[in-house]
């Protein structure tokens, strides 16, 4: 897509299309990546509740894989995860490793 020139812009940088933020993939901001460990997951959905970026996909009441297009790697999910018998179901791994 050709980048917009100044003549193409709406006045006052107003965004007139709702929901257009989904076109801006913020996953590239991530330094640490959350990794889901299904065998330790009790499906409490704390991660889904706490995630500020709606980056945890849920289907039929059960969590699935992370949506890495929007996960910024804040680590809140890993911190809140109760895990199973002291074993976390989400661990943070440095990107590129």
């Amino acid at each position: 897509m050709k980048p917009k020139g100044w003549k193409d812009l709406p006045p006052g940088s107003v965004i007139t299309r709702p929901g257009s933020a989904t076109e801006f993939k913020t996953g590239s901001w991530r330094t640490f990546r959350p990794v889901w460990v299904p065998e330790n997951c009790i499906q409490c959905l704390f991660c889904w509740m706490y995630c500020p970026d709606m980056a945890i996909k849920v289907k039929d009441g059960k969590r699935e894989e992370f949506d890495y297009d929007y996960c910024k790697g804040c680590g809140i999910c890993a911190r809140e995860c109760p895990g199973k018998k002291g074993q976390k179901a989400i661990i943070m791994v440095e990107e590129g490793k």
């Binding site: 100044w6 006045p11 709702p18």
Partner: peptide, 24 residues
């Protein structure tokens, strides 16, 4: 017709907005 005011505009578009502001 929902709209948003005051978005974050990074170096890829900020200068175009300022140029448009001069134009008006």
């Amino acid at each position: 017709h929902p709209v948003s005011y005051g978005p974050l505009i990074l170096p890829d578009l900020y200068m175009e907005y300022k140029r448009a502001q001069h134009e008006v």
